[in-house]
Amino acid sequence: MIDQNPVLALDNVSKVFGKGATPVYAARSVSFALRAGRTLALVGESGSGKTTCARLIMREYQPDEGQLLFRGAPVSHSMAAYRRAVQMIFQDPFSALNPAHTVHYHLERPLRLHQKGLGAAQRKAAIEELLERVKLDPALMAAKFPHELSGGQRQRISIARALAVGPEVIVADEPTSMLDVSVRLGILNLLNEMKRSLGLALLYITHDIATARYVAEDIIVMYAGQIVEWGPTESVLNNPQHAYTRLLLSAVPDPDVRFAQSQYNAEMADVENIRRLSAVPQPVISEVGPGHFIRPIAG
């Protein structure tokens, strides 16, 4: 595998849809590892396979090839420990919470399910602690219903709910894309802080590369189900080697650069071609810097 003692790893995982004449690889031979106290960003456009990876990790999909490794061992069907250890934060804070229940209920539920030993008073104390952790006032928040909360507050409740069971891995799929700009940074800071203080392994899925840079030590760029480039975030962003990564970086909104002065305008002028070539399966991997890899386009 890729490195020493990851908490969770995908080992050559593929997920195929439509098994007829033209099967579609939503994920093709995807391998990566999540380590305690580190964030891995998964970036790419819609349909690149980011969310498929999240679903594989959450075991909503079974891999068609390859396997999921939790602490080095293959993940089996009935692993309560895995369910507890791997939690998810969703994109839409408006649909992720049940409108009929209070904040207290949302946080008590996972405690009841996963920490059966706790009494009512202990659960109440645990809920207060969770709310404080996500910087919300327990006295004000616990009795509220989701509709009384802002988008940012709801996302904090989602995070608190994920933390309630004492997870080791958190998968955050576009956790800030539906929030206003001024609220996003607070959520990103919270994720960074959780990672540090709780030693969580974080998978941060996004199309917003600037926020990926803000939270993640390592980054993976996906296209058409395949990882095309990966490595330390600064190395990949400052020195992208794959044509698709350059194309993507050129298109990311960047107030420092007017359109005409973009660094990778050659790639921008060749969109169709780069997309076509990048979608071709490439088994060959080449190292282009320390820990920085690409699947080079053949030919």
Binding site: V181, S182, R184, L185, A210, R213, L237, D254, D256
Partner: peptide
């Protein structure tokens, strides 16, 4: 100014 200060950047200093 606050809007800019809340947006992570692609190059250079984070914020």
């Amino acid at each position: 100014r606050k809007l800019w200060a809340s947006m992570p950047r692609l190059h250079g200093e984070q914020i």
